[in-house]
Amino acid sequence: MFGIRRLLTVFTLLCVVSPAFGADTPAEPSTYGKALSDAELTPISELLASPEDFVGKTVKVEGRILGVCEMRGCWIEIASDEEFESIRFKVEDGEMVFPVEAKGRLATAEGTFEKIELDLDQTRKMKQHECEEKGEPFDPETVTEAAVIYRIAGQGAVVR
């Protein structure tokens, strides 16, 4: 009987400290996916100023993380070096998982710059998904134009 009690105590203690299991230590740099290359950084403002020049190319960018996919950690939004601009760094679900705590940290990220042309229906679905993630209401009638998205298909990143 004493043995079972002791086991239960140990189990309870493990449950209490379990948040520390495998947890990212936000203060330390965390690596995701492939190791970064030695390539030069490309300012995000440069990418967004002439996106067609970079489509299909591997780019390495750096910036403050403005947001993280809350549900799956499958993207981070990286601030540009210019105000009012940012770019999404998207990874395959489960390939890399960015913790919500990464918001506000600095990311160096590398991947393929890609262009996605959506039709109106796809644009509405994307906007609906974004609203669902933020817990905001969505009215499909407010979306009247098909969107063109530029983003980075992620290969690797370091968050510090």
Partner: peptide, 19 residues
């Protein structure tokens, strides 16, 4: 202020083999 769910965060991380 985001906070990890105690226990469940660890369970999900193991279940989905994040590491």
């Amino acid at each position: 202020r985001p906070r990890r769910r105690p226990v469940l965060y660890a369970f999900n991380r193991l279940h989905l083999n994040r590491d």
